[in-house]
Amino acid sequence: MDLDAFIATHVGQWRRLEDLVRRRRLSGAEADELLDLYQRVSTHLSVVRSASPDPSLVSYLSALLARARHTATGTRPTTWRTFTRFFTETFPAALYRTRAWWIATAVLSVLAALAVGAWSVRNPEIFAQQMTPAEIDAYVGTDFENYYSEFPGAEFAAQVWTNNAWIAAQCIALGVLGLPVLWILAQNVLNIGIAGGLMASHGRASLFFGLILPHGLLELTAVFIAAAVGLRLFWSWIEPGPRTRLQSLAAEGRTGAAIALGLVVVLFVAGMIEGFVTGTDLPTWVRVGIGAVVEAAFLAYVFVVGGRAARRGVTGDVAESDREASAPVAA
Rank of each mutant, 00 (worst) to 15 (best):
F6S: 04
H10S: 15
G12P: 06
G12I: 01
W14N: 03
W14S: 12
D19K: 03
L20K: 00
V21P: 10
R24G: 13
R25E: 08
R25I: 11
S27E: 12
G28W: 14
E33A: 04
Q39T: 05
Q39H: 12
R40P: 10
V41H: 13
S42Q: 06
S42G: 09
T43Q: 12
R49P: 14
R49G: 02
P53R: 04
P55R: 06
P55M: 07
T75W: 10
T79F: 05
T82A: 08
T82Y: 03
F86K: 00
F86A: 01
A93C: 07
Y96R: 14
T98W: 10
R99L: 09
V107S: 03
V107P: 14
L111C: 13
N123W: 13
P124T: 12
E125P: 04
M131G: 06
T132R: 03
P133W: 13
I136L: 01
A138L: 07
Y139E: 03
V140E: 09
V140L: 13
T142R: 05
E145V: 05
Y148I: 11
S149Y: 04
S149E: 08
F151N: 06
G153S: 05
E155P: 14
F156G: 10
Q159E: 03
W161C: 08
N163K: 15
N164C: 01
W166M: 10
Q170A: 11
L174W: 11
L177I: 12
G178I: 05
G178V: 08
L179V: 04
L182R: 08
W183G: 06
L185T: 00
N188K: 00
V189M: 09
G193Q: 04
G193I: 00
I194M: 13
G196H: 00
S201L: 11
F208Y: 09
F208V: 02
F209Q: 04
L213F: 14
P214M: 01
H215S: 15
L217M: 02
L220P: 02
A222Q: 07
V223G: 13
F224G: 04
I225D: 04
A227F: 12
V229R: 03
L233W: 10
W237R: 15
Q247A: 09
S248N: 05
A250E: 10
E252T: 03
E252P: 02
G256C: 05
A257R: 15
V264P: 07
V265R: 00
V266D: 12
F268E: 06
V269D: 04
A270L: 01
M272K: 14
E274G: 13
E274H: 07
G275I: 00
F276T: 01
F276Y: 09
F276W: 14
F276P: 01
T280S: 02
T284Q: 05
V286S: 00
I290C: 00
G291T: 12
Y301V: 07
V304C: 14
G306D: 12
D317S: 12
A319C: 14
A325V: 14
S326C: 09
P328W: 11
